[in-house]
Design a protein around this nucleic acid. Structure first.
Lengths: 189, 189
DNA sequence: GTCTATATTTGGATAGAC
DNA sequence: GTCTATCCAAATATAGAC
């Protein structure tokens, strides 16, 4: 009878994604993934026959699923402002309140395989589109909504870099707390 | 008689820094640096006997010098607002108008040697301090100056990530153009 | 499906001639 | 100071037993 996996697909995706997002594509070794997952390297190749690049794709897929869940309130809550606030909380938690990095940053350095970079771009676009749409529904004009979403993206990514470089996670915390005021117009907050 | 170097110290620092900033520490190979510099790998080891980590330190030192020059107007110009505007232009150019990455981002991923991360932090601190000081002299109160500087840092770094991930460099251009209004109080602009 | 053991390639680093 | 040639360790990937 088939042997059950020692870690299920989703757990494995989570563990792998954590390594890639901290160390980037080239900085991540199969040994790092083995250590993080509790599997031997050969077992990882059994799960992902196409090797490291496939493992990285799995990491991005996992992040995409996590992100979709985080963005859901902003997209679905009839009270858009409340949904945005809930999504902001989710983002804060997802990024370890400023202590973690973003795969969109760390996995897109020059040297990463083009398919990975493409996938990262589509993740970024999905996130930006979701914020733009929410800002629009919250009362922003189309142009202002696009700008607000870009601004939110820029501030989150920049605050994560600041946190990693200086060790100060406070700016990220403030940034996340500020997100609703960015995406919801003054007079609708 | 001693043979003159085929590339001088500063040129070499520039070429090496360009590779590290694009590919990060682990993503950069000695072969990449050799290709970029036109030297053989062994020649790089002659220049930098302590190997890759020393080469990365040289890259950071070079970036530190470039940065000092870019920050000079903001620090020295008696007309602070004018100096800030000039520094902003310098930053825009240094980052290839949004097409390049920042070493503070790419060289600080988990896995980079601690001394490198320390050096990157001190570079970031110097930049933040310079902006804080300028904002203070431009008329901001101490607390507001600190916040303005952090905001400027966050926006620049975030816009560079956005540019790398989505290919859209326009946001970085806008960000740089906006820097003076961030660092100079409304009523002093 | 996971493991131990191993093959193969890459990459950091060195030796020594010129 | 730069080069060719080489060493050696690390990393990706594979083979085959359980």
């Amino acid at each position: 009878m088939p042997r059950p996996p020692s870690v299920d697909e989703d757990q494995l995706g989570d563990l792998i994604a954590a390594v890639f997002r901290a160390k980037g594509y080239e900085g991540t070794g199969i040994g790092d993934l083995a250590t993080a997952s509790g599997l031997q390297r050969a077992s990882l190749y059994h799960r992902f026959p196409d090797g490291k690049e496939q493992m990285a794709q799995v990491a991005l897929t996992h992040v995409g699923r996590r992100f979709a869940a985080i963005l859901a309130p902003m997209r679905d809550d009839p009270d858009v402002a409340r949904g945005i606030a809930e999504t902001a909380r989710g983002l804060g938690e997802f990024y370890g309140f400023g202590a973690l990095s973003c795969v969109l940053d760390t996995m897109t350095l020059a040297g990463a395989p083009a398919p990975l970079r493409d996938r990262a771009r589509s993740l970024a676009t999905a996130w930006l589109d979701a914020m733009t749409d929410a800002a629009r529904r919250a009362g922003h004009r189309p142009e202002a909504a696009v700008r607000a979403a870009r601004d939110a993206f820029v501030r989150v990514e920049g605050a994560l870099v600041l946190g990693r470089v200086t060790g100060d996670t406070g700016v990220f915390a403030e940034t996340v707390a500020l997100l609703p005021s960015l995406l919801v117009p003054e007079d609708r907050a």
